[in-house]
Amino acid sequence: MATSYADSAQAREWDRRYDDWGRPKAPKVEDFHDYEAAALKRTQMQAKAAEQEVINRKARAKRVAAAVDAYGEFWGLK
Score class of each variant (00 low, 15 high):
1 M>W: 12
1 M>V: 08
2 A>R: 08
3 T>N: 07
4 S>F: 15
4 S>W: 15
4 S>G: 10
5 Y>H: 12
6 A>Y: 05
6 A>H: 07
6 A>S: 09
7 D>K: 06
7 D>I: 02
8 S>P: 02
8 S>T: 11
9 A>W: 01
9 A>Y: 00
9 A>G: 01
9 A>D: 02
10 Q>R: 03
10 Q>C: 02
12 R>F: 05
14 W>I: 03
15 D>A: 11
15 D>K: 07
15 D>G: 03
16 R>E: 01
16 R>Y: 02
16 R>W: 04
16 R>K: 05
17 R>V: 06
17 R>Q: 09
18 Y>V: 09
19 D>C: 03
20 D>W: 02
21 W>L: 10
21 W>Q: 13
21 W>H: 13
22 G>I: 00
22 G>E: 00
23 R>Y: 15
25 K>W: 09
26 A>P: 03
27 P>T: 00
27 P>D: 00
28 K>L: 13
28 K>V: 08
29 V>P: 11
29 V>Y: 13
30 E>Q: 05
30 E>M: 00
30 E>T: 02
31 D>P: 00
31 D>Y: 04
31 D>K: 01
31 D>N: 06
32 F>E: 03
32 F>S: 02
32 F>Q: 02
33 H>A: 12
33 H>V: 15
33 H>F: 14
33 H>G: 05
33 H>S: 09
34 D>N: 12
34 D>S: 04
35 Y>M: 09
35 Y>L: 10
35 Y>S: 10
35 Y>T: 09
35 Y>P: 04
35 Y>N: 06
36 E>T: 07
37 A>F: 04
37 A>I: 02
37 A>S: 07
39 A>V: 08
40 L>N: 09
40 L>W: 11
40 L>P: 01
41 K>H: 04
41 K>F: 04
41 K>P: 00
42 R>Y: 04
42 R>F: 05
43 T>L: 15
44 Q>M: 04
45 M>I: 09
48 K>L: 15
48 K>N: 14
48 K>R: 11
49 A>Y: 09
49 A>P: 01
49 A>E: 09
49 A>C: 06
50 A>R: 10
51 E>K: 09
51 E>C: 13
51 E>D: 14
51 E>R: 11
52 Q>S: 13
52 Q>A: 15
53 E>R: 15
54 V>T: 12
54 V>W: 14
54 V>R: 12
54 V>G: 12
55 I>K: 10
56 N>F: 12
56 N>Y: 14
56 N>T: 14
57 R>D: 12
59 A>W: 12
59 A>P: 05
59 A>L: 08
60 R>I: 06
61 A>K: 03
61 A>M: 11
61 A>Q: 05
61 A>V: 02
62 K>N: 11
63 R>H: 06
65 A>D: 00
66 A>S: 06
66 A>V: 03
67 A>M: 05
68 V>M: 05
70 A>V: 05
71 Y>R: 03
71 Y>M: 07
72 G>Y: 08
72 G>H: 06
72 G>R: 10
72 G>E: 07
72 G>T: 08
73 E>M: 11
74 F>R: 10
75 W>L: 15
75 W>M: 07
75 W>H: 12
75 W>G: 05
76 G>Q: 03
76 G>H: 00
76 G>T: 04
